[in-house]
Amino acid sequence: MIRISIRKKLHLAGGKGELNIDAELGDYSFTALYGPSGAGKTTLLRIISGLLQPEQGIIEVNGQTWLNTAKKINLPAQKRNIGFVFQDYALFPNMTVQENLLYALPPKVDQSKVKSLLATMGLQNLAHQKPELLSGGQKQRVALARALVRQPQILLLDEPLSALDNITRIQLQNELQNIHQQHQLTTLLVSHHVPEIFKLAGQVIQIDAGQLIKTGTPNEVFGIHTHHEGITLTGEVVTLLPGNIEVLTAYGLISIKPSAQTVGLAMGDKVTIHAADLSLVKLS
């Protein structure tokens, strides 16, 4: 169990703000951190990893205190057993793929660990390449493999798949899923991509402007609810024309024909869309 409670001043796009997060990550859970750019997602990851210190906060990992500002405890990043995959991969340009992994190997640990990781990640043929010659997907694999060398307690992934094409992205999603299952790692993934979150995460933490908006399963957070009336989806009215109403949902814009029920709606109203109201046409 990982318990996080953080207060940190932020410089947001709209002026100064505060990161204010209380959250718990279950053992071996896969949690997605979701929110717009500048919401404080990366800042939160950096605080958990020890790269950044908050003004106030507590981080406890499986009963061990990593941070407690009241008691002046603050383990440096080196002492926190984490795997961090950076958005820009942060592979060391002066080392080959294999050397990048060997560098991460703790002293007195057998080198076979690196060999087996290279094999399971499909990187054997690239072992002696320098990172500059790799494609985005390959760099991502190396960064993941390197983060796993230390057998971390938490894997922190800062939008690792955002710069990849769709096919590579799906391949790497599958690999992340496998890694999570095989290594039994508590994983925290920053992602903007709702389908990705549905595929990978069991829990979502939604933040905006440093504040916790919602936590729960992807279904709970992204507004799909199944109940006696069928499936509903929540959203916000963004277009209001005589012949067309558009609702912004986590899945994009959905157009609705005005009806007796939509009389009196105003821009910005929160609404639920019932699956039963939408028409359905089979693709030819």
């Binding site: 950096r46 990893s49 020890g50 790269l51 440096p76 990043a77 080196q78 002492k79 926190r80 057993n81 984490i82 795997g83 961090f84 950076f86 958005q87 820009d88 942060a90 592979l91 060391f92 560098y103 991460a104 703790p106 390197r146 983060a147 060398v149 230390r150």
Partner: peptide, 12 residues
Amino acid sequence: SLREASQTLGKS
């Protein structure tokens, strides 16, 4: 991120 990656890998 190069320096930070090295720190998160436990290096002094």
